[in-house]
Simulated scan of single mutants.
Amino acid sequence: MAFRLFLSLSVMLFLTACKAGKQMPKLSNKKLCADSECSHPILIARALQDYYPGDCRFIPIQQGQIVYVYAMLKDRGNLFWAGSVQNTYYGEQEARIGHFPSSVVEETHALMPATTEVKTTNWDFYCN
């Protein structure tokens, strides 16, 4: 009986630890994008310095990397942009979109105007 209880607790702890992701607090309720789905990059930037994120909402960036920016957060989150790092940094992993401080990059090419205001959703700040 004690072994069954131990086995059941072990399985429950394992399943809890293996959850796919978690919801993180929103950085902002609005963002500026090129379109209503934020599917087109609005600008290309180059990293001025390394950035090591504090949590999973953010992406790591290395100095000199190219970053495609898809959204600029507004209101209380206006210091953050959302984008994808492009380079050999990820190796065989696919690049992912995440947030980073706008101060760690410099704009190199404007692509599309960020004139569409979009409400952020829980998925904007979901961590895998």
Rank of each mutant, 00 (worst) to 15 (best):
Y90P: 15
R46N: 11
K30G: 03
A2G: 12
Y70T: 10
F6E: 13
D55K: 10
G91T: 09
C127T: 08
F58L: 07
L32I: 03
A114Y: 03
I59M: 07
G91S: 12
A95N: 08
C56F: 09
S102E: 07
E106L: 10
N29V: 01
G21D: 14
V85P: 01
W123F: 07
K31D: 05
F80A: 05
H109R: 15
Y89C: 05
L79D: 05
Q86H: 12
H109F: 09
Y51E: 00
L9E: 12
E37R: 11
K26S: 00
Y51A: 01
K31P: 03
L111Y: 14
R57P: 10
E37M: 07
Q93G: 09
N122I: 01
W81D: 02
S36I: 04
W123E: 14
T120C: 08
E92I: 12
Q63M: 09
T121W: 03
C38N: 01
C33E: 02
L15S: 13
V104P: 04
C33D: 00
C38Y: 00
E92W: 11
Y52K: 13
V67K: 00
T115P: 00
G98L: 10
L111P: 00
L32Q: 15
N29L: 04
A2V: 07
R96F: 13
L73S: 06
Y90R: 15
W81P: 00
V11R: 14
S39H: 07
Y89A: 12
S103Q: 11
A2F: 04
L79N: 02
Q65K: 05
F3Y: 10
K26P: 02
F14C: 15
P60Y: 08
C38G: 06
A114M: 05
W81E: 04
M1L: 08
F125Y: 04
L48M: 07
S103W: 05
Q49G: 09
L43T: 05
R57Y: 07
L48A: 04
F3A: 11
V118F: 05
R96K: 11
T115F: 11
T121V: 12
Q65G: 04
C127R: 02
N128C: 13
K31T: 03
E92S: 13
T121G: 14
I61M: 05
I59C: 01
M72D: 03
P53W: 13
S84N: 05
N87W: 07
S36A: 10
M72G: 06
M24A: 15
L15A: 13
E117Y: 03
K22G: 04
Q63Y: 03
Y70L: 10
Y52M: 13
S103H: 05
T88L: 10
S10T: 09
L111A: 01
C18S: 14
C56D: 15
F3R: 12
P41C: 12
T120G: 03
N87A: 14
V104G: 04
P60G: 06
E37V: 06
P53I: 11
G91P: 07
R46T: 12
Q63P: 00
I66G: 02
A95Y: 13
G83K: 08
I59V: 13
